[in-house]
Amino acid sequence: MYPPAVRSLSRKRSCVSAFHSIPARPRMRFADFFRCAALAACFFLVLAVSAQRVNNTHPMFQTVSPLGAASNFVVVIDAAHGGSDLGARLSPALDEKTVTLALARRLRSLLAAHGISVVMTRTGDTALPMATRAGIANHAHAAACLILHATDSGVGVHLFTSSLSPAPRPEIPAWGTAQAGYIHQSVRLSSDVDAAFIHTTVPVIVGRTFLQPLDNLTCPALAIELAPKPSSTLTSAKSVDNPGYQSTVLNAIVTGILQWQQDWSHQP
């Protein structure tokens, strides 16, 4: 019988000798290869699932392309605010972000029904940085970019184009003045939408402003702000949220966009 220290040493020795006695090298290589293959398969599986999820959820890919649509006439709709950015507080229970998203969804459906492809910058209650909104719109190469807002001040509908001075389009536009090359088209778009309200009782105010991301867009762009219905018995918030009033305004906007589609197709 050995003392404990010697027994431990002899066990280690036996282990080492056993390890050396087995031809382990070729078996380890095969195991490594097997593990690598399994890992790569898992990686590609995860990648494929992620790509599928991005395709389904990212707003940039949320394009409604109805059959028979003019393939290159795309309208971008940007529902302003979202997430922690509430926008104007129209009433204690109603924020601007909720109204703009509801308007954007209805407008998307109406435009799609007329065969127009639509890209939404957001489809849920998410906060998007201005640069991301402009990036989505600019990548869509849109024929019209509509930024939707709502307020409880003033009456009717306010149409705003950028206050930037018109300038020739450079090959690579500067971020802060990207809209400068599209001012003439934006004013024309504004004029078409304004003209569509003639047959309604909704007053329209046309103006120019400095607004993000309007100035960063490389497309004919228009900010549309819904204000309370004139001489309404409802409070301003209820008036802005009124489905009938919204329908009147949205139908006029669609009429304006259809007119713009004709004007746009005749442009060089």
Binding site: D194, V204, V206, Q212
Partner: peptide, 25 residues
């Protein structure tokens, strides 16, 4: 500030000559 109350851009210098109010139709 980025905006006045969530909308009008305050990050730029405004030129008095080129700022004009809107029109009503």
């Amino acid at each position: 500030g980025a905006t006045l109350a969530g909308h009008a851009d305050l990050m730029r210098t405004y030129l008095a000559e080129s700022t004009v109010p809107g029109s009503k139709s």
